[in-house]
């Protein structure tokens, strides 16, 4: 179809038009960490995200209390540090699964039997309450998508005021992973009578544990 390509580009080149200048974005006034956390929480809770502030080492304790209470018996984690910690400190009543093999080997089980998935994140955006995830070998794409409950550990130091700031600060243009995500709340739809309904295809619940 090289012919199509050349035809299309040739048609597009029949005109020369002046390109308007796009002025730079105004700088966002800096905010301290606590203000960013408050903004993040307000924005995410507005779309039914659950936010908990914990001290650094307390997330295991939180999981041990909350997972059985929420009826989670099959928890999925990646092969990174979070999965390793969970493996060395088992939670009574909760079976830990590791996402350690290609999805093709266990797709049906992943879709049918996992109650919750836990991931880290690269940071978050205060203005919209969005989590930044870069899935990869240690935390594959479907880990944050298929289980009905998604738990995310967020380091409070990694909050950015808005998306533009995060893109600059994290150097996105230097190289993006095969898949990068902004996640803002649990899955939702309003396709029937414009009525907001939660948990259509992705997680029904999103829990963020803000650490530090």
């Amino acid at each position: 179809m090289n012919e199509a390509r050349n035809h299309i580009l040739k048609r597009l080149r029949t005109v020369q038009r002046e390109a308007p200048d796009t002025n730079a974005l105004p700088a966002i006034a800096g905010a301290d960490a606590e203000t960013l956390i408050t903004r993040f929480r307000t924005a995410l809770e507005a779309v039914r995200g659950e936010v908990h502030r914990l001290r650094d080492g307390d997330w295991m304790g939180w999981l041990a209390r909350e997972l059985p209470a929420r009826g989670v018996s099959n928890l999925l984690a990646g092969t990174g540090k979070i999965g390793h910690t969970l493996q060395t400190h088992p939670i009574p009543g909760v079976t830990l699964h590791r996402y350690d093999r290609p999805v093709e080997d266990w797709k049906d089980a992943l879709f049918e039997h996992i109650d919750a998935g836990i991931t880290g994140c690269r940071g978050a955006i205060a203005a919209t309450g969005s989590l930044i995830l870069w899935p990869g070998p240690e935390e594959p794409r479907l880990l944050s998508l298929v289980p009905p409950l998604h738990i995310v550990l967020l380091d409070a130091a990694n909050l950015h005021a808005d998306l533009a700031t995060a893109i600059r600060a994290q150097g996105w243009t230097q190289g993006l992973p095969t898949n990068a995500l902004l996640i803002t709340g649990p899955s939702k739809t309003a396709d029937i009578e414009q009525t907001l309904t939660w948990g259509i295809h992705g997680p029904r619940e999103l829990v963020v544990l803000v650490l530090g």
Partner: peptide, 30 residues
């Protein structure tokens, strides 16, 4: 202010990844 998901796709599954499509194609329509 934002949708639940903003999905940035910059490539198919790499050799060391465990999910994602093995092939990604883009059809550009005139």
């Amino acid at each position: 202010p934002i949708t639940t998901y903003v999905n940035f796709i910059s490539g198919p599954r790499r050799a060391d990844e465990l999910d994602g499509p093995r092939e990604v194609h883009l059809v550009l329509l005139d």
